[in-house]
């Protein structure tokens, strides 16, 4: 039971990283903005928990895949904006291809007719 639970967390974290990096591909964004983008783009399916989002952002920053800067928003408010670094772009490309491989592989399994 315990190990299953841990796997779920890891899967979510890994996926969240991919989603965050993907979101930032379109330009710098703050935490709230990132969660809004993921929610709307996923058709309201993916709700990003703040307790996962902020640790993920800080971890990605520690790994130097993103960097942060305080800037003014369109509504003239101070917010901490994150943006992709060069390393982050490379990481995004890797994670995308891994995700696509995984997705293809799972898709292939699911599409195969059941034998016997």
């Amino acid at each position: 039971m315990k190990s299953q639970y841990q796997n779920r967390i890891e899967l979510l974290q890994g996926t969240l990283d991919l989603l965050i990096l993907q979101t930032l591909l379109w330009g710098p964004q703050h935490g709230y903005g990132i969660s809004q983008v993921i929610r709307t783009q996923s058709g309201e399916v993916l709700q990003v928990d703040t307790g996962s989002l902020y640790p993920a952002l800080h971890r990605l920053e520690k790994q130097k895949w993103i960097k942060s800067e305080w800037k003014l928003t369109e509504k003239n408010q101070e917010a901490k904006f994150y943006q992709l670094t060069a390393a982050g772009r490379k990481q995004l490309a890797e994670e995308r291809s891994r995700w696509e491989q995984l997705s293809d592989a799972i898709g292939a399994v699911l599409k195969n007719p059941v034998i016997g």
Binding site: H30, G31, Y32, G33, T50, Y54, E78, A79
Partner: peptide, 9 residues
């Protein structure tokens, strides 16, 4: 500050 700005927005 980051969290406050989140809440505000």
């Amino acid at each position: 500050a980051e969290i406050q700005s989140h809440l505000q927005m």
